[in-house]
Computed example of a mutant assay.
Amino acid sequence: MPTSEDGKAELYGPTQVPGSLRSQVARELNIAPENISIGLPRQGGGFGRKLQPDNGVEAALISAAAKCPVQVQWTREDDMQNDFYRPSAAFRYRAAFENGELLAWHQSSVWLGRGSAADTYPAGAVSNFRSESQSLNTNIATGPWRAPTHNVLGFAAESFMDEVCHELKKDPIAFRLSLLDKAKQQPIGRISYNPDKFKSVIDLVANMSNWGKTPPGIFRGFATWFSFNTYVAQVVDLKMVGGKARVQKVYCAVNCGKVVNLSGAENQVEGAIVDGIGHALFTKVTFDKGAVVEQNFDTYRFLRMRNAPLDISVKFVPSEDAPTGLGEPALPPIAAALANALFAATGKRHRKMPFEG
């Protein structure tokens, strides 16, 4: 309920950017920022949307015009059709081999808005590495979504890495460990990750899942990623039931420095995995003549309980290092791990999300 009286304003509502909200309200109402107080209820999730202060500014303007406190609440239809949408991206990958070794890796990407593949893994482990990124302007309002940039980059890169392993007839985990050994022992150029910490989560998830001894009827996919200073490795187990894939279990190993609140940390990781699977399989927004087609949850498909993993096992690498990010890093690799498991089950590669869109 924003109020504005005698050059002061009070706002109550969830936001990830109270400083930005304060400065924009101050500018719009022409009052001093120090005269604006913001109450932050601990409710709901952010996932990037609350990095935009537009709804708070709107409430402040309405309150000022009405000269009374107001509560502003958007309908689901308003929210879905007037949002800041996750930027799309397209990737092209090429690799060169000789005698079973990966000699060259070329990744090229085009992003709506801002995005970059930069020097992400496997940079530093390949003799010839090239990364290119371009931005494409759009009149669609875009904004961050959980694990910005990494949420699509992890899917593209780790899906392609699985294709490389398949082409070379290499075990996906053993091959990645060999690359990380090269990055540690003979790094090529600058690397932005710690090979030992990367290996720690791969080794841990291999042990958790008993990698190499796949249970009967189970098809497996593996992926790993580094983002927000945290290392994550995941194995997805699925079965084909009536011609449909059903995720049985997700194993997830995390190196995020010292874990302060174990149950909270587990919750963050489990939530990111479920969120990532839902977006990999179903969720999408489409536009028709500039207008959003989906208006509510009857057309915007979410992950339902019948499609959610039957079990998720999470373990953390013991560490006394300072804590690093955790709300986002478990999301980027899950789409790739799922896609790689689907390839093992069906022989079909999924190169576009959502897989069932």
Score class of each variant (00 low, 15 high):
residue 87 P to T: 13
residue 163 E to D: 13
residue 238 L to I: 13
residue 45 G to L: 11
residue 205 V to E: 08
residue 78 D to T: 07
residue 2 P to I: 02
residue 159 S to A: 05
residue 187 P to Y: 11
residue 345 A to S: 05
residue 24 Q to T: 01
residue 274 V to H: 07
residue 203 D to Y: 09
residue 350 H to I: 08
residue 158 E to L: 08
residue 232 V to I: 14
residue 217 G to D: 15
residue 8 K to P: 00
residue 170 K to D: 04
residue 96 A to E: 01
residue 242 G to C: 02
residue 253 A to N: 04
residue 239 K to L: 03
residue 134 Q to V: 04
residue 268 Q to H: 08
residue 161 M to D: 02
residue 168 L to S: 01
residue 274 V to Q: 08
residue 176 R to L: 13
residue 3 T to C: 08
residue 72 V to G: 03
residue 154 G to H: 02
residue 310 L to A: 12
residue 165 C to M: 07
residue 75 T to S: 15
residue 101 E to K: 12
residue 285 V to D: 06
residue 105 W to F: 07
residue 269 V to I: 05
residue 234 Q to I: 09
residue 163 E to S: 11
residue 251 Y to H: 07
residue 73 Q to M: 14
residue 95 A to G: 08
residue 284 K to D: 11
residue 244 K to P: 08
residue 166 H to I: 10
residue 129 F to R: 01
residue 115 G to N: 08
residue 278 G to R: 04
residue 312 I to P: 02
residue 332 P to L: 05
residue 228 F to A: 14
residue 139 N to S: 15
residue 74 W to P: 12
residue 257 G to V: 00
residue 74 W to Q: 11
residue 166 H to R: 11
residue 11 L to H: 10
residue 324 T to V: 03
residue 308 A to D: 04
residue 19 G to A: 13
residue 291 A to E: 15
residue 142 T to F: 07
residue 154 G to I: 00
residue 258 K to A: 14
residue 21 L to K: 01
residue 26 A to R: 06
residue 185 Q to S: 15
residue 206 A to D: 05
residue 319 S to F: 02
residue 3 T to P: 01
residue 281 L to A: 02
residue 97 F to H: 13
residue 199 K to W: 07
residue 292 V to E: 13
residue 252 C to A: 14
residue 273 I to A: 13
residue 343 F to H: 15
residue 86 R to T: 03
residue 190 R to D: 14
residue 153 L to H: 03
residue 149 T to M: 03
residue 173 I to G: 01
residue 344 A to R: 09
residue 160 F to L: 03
residue 133 S to M: 01
residue 313 S to T: 09
residue 175 F to N: 10
residue 345 A to C: 07
residue 207 N to I: 04
residue 338 L to Y: 13
residue 227 S to V: 06
residue 254 V to Y: 02
residue 332 P to G: 07
residue 216 P to C: 06
residue 347 G to M: 00
residue 111 W to H: 09
residue 168 L to M: 11
residue 78 D to F: 05
residue 328 E to P: 13
residue 52 Q to M: 10
residue 111 W to S: 02
residue 137 N to S: 14
residue 62 I to C: 03
residue 340 N to Q: 14
residue 22 R to G: 04
residue 125 A to P: 12
residue 342 L to S: 05
residue 151 N to M: 09
residue 308 A to M: 10
residue 129 F to C: 07
residue 295 Q to G: 12
residue 15 T to D: 01
